[in-house]
Design a protein around this nucleic acid. Sequence first.
DNA 1: GTATTTTTATACTGTGCAGTATATTATATT
DNA 2: AATATAATATACTGCACAGTATAAAAATAC
Lengths: 204, 204
Amino acid sequence: MSVNKGRPAGRRGRPRAFDVEEVLDRALQVFWRKGYEGASLDDLTGAMGISRPSLYAAFGDKEGLFRKALDHYADGPLSFTREALKEPTARAAVERLLLGAVKMQADPDTPPGCLMVHGALACGEGADSIRQELNSRRAAYEADLRRRLVRAKAEGDLPPDANPADLARYFVTVVRGMAVEAAGGASSHQLRRVVRLALRAWPE
Amino acid sequence: MSVNKGRPAGRRGRPRAFDVEEVLDRALQVFWRKGYEGASLDDLTGAMGISRPSLYAAFGDKEGLFRKALDHYADGPLSFTREALKEPTARAAVERLLLGAVKMQADPDTPPGCLMVHGALACGEGADSIRQELNSRRAAYEADLRRRLVRAKAEGDLPPDANPADLARYFVTVVRGMAVEAAGGASSHQLRRVVRLALRAWPE
DNA sequence: GTATTTTTATACTGTGCAGTATATTATATT
DNA sequence: AATATAATATACTGCACAGTATAAAAATAC
């Protein structure tokens, strides 16, 4: 209990015995598997390997911890979305987005499904601010895709009669449906076949 | 408190002061809006207008009540699925299935989304039997659609290279994605545009 | 070495939960 | 009318939960 991992000198007092990013990752796994309200503080502290007061000192409260875990999720498992949208063609971007979603949602090393879908639905009325946060984050991902498709249309990468807003909503709807299926036990093989069919809606 | 609505003679003792189907419908609304674990017994008894012991006497326990509410859901809001599959062509059946799902999920008179999707995700590990029940019920709906598409293929109503299992999974995935979107506030107008695109995957 | 500051360990608090015990009320039977 | 039976109303039980108070431990500052 005297590790003091590369902390800047000048910080007085007893040093933290844990690495914030590491325990955040453990917390993310718990929230991902159980949802916001389904994850109890005993679940969280048990998986994180820290005590309750340590958690509160480092993250504020359960909601603060969840928001930090959400950021961690966006920067880690969900980072493929940013990369996907950089593909040169809209078609390639969407294909990579869908297949990336499959890979993430059915990855055997992480809980099945999607934290944002699971979290938003598995969330009573008491945690309304959490639900709003998740809704707005999901809306932001849809908006990113929509902007990418608007750009594609301007570039002639999509036919003139294509509707970027409708297409974006359709594809994120498929992604969220796959999250439900993955949470129910669907395999990545099955979901890839869903992707293949979903892409047949592509405007040619 | 002495209504005694058409109960068969010979039932001794104080008669029920409530109608079972009616309070079941109230319970369904609560579960639909809040999920299985999110619905407390105070929520339920409050909406149903009956006392706690009456609930336990009539439905066993919370899980028993939920299962009865699920049956009520299948017989009511979800009954359109049986009708949809009776359409003469597979294409018409799927179209009616998707549009019926939109109507149900975005009906302003009922909670948004789908009880089975919401219930399965908003369900901690404590209620594992509930989750399994919902998973198997959802699988049953997918199987119904698959059988309808297998029949269509045998009748020449689908091309020989069409894959009924893949198509069924794809369309139920879209339906579940729409349930997530509806729970997040999507309108029926928006969801109908999703349906229009989803149907472009239809094998011609 | 002593004081100061921050983290940690343990144990607690109040609240909401599902389920139940007890007593009362309303009906049918006799 | 008296009795048996089933449903209701009220209040309770034990438990899990998020959050916290208190004191001990581990580091820096002087």
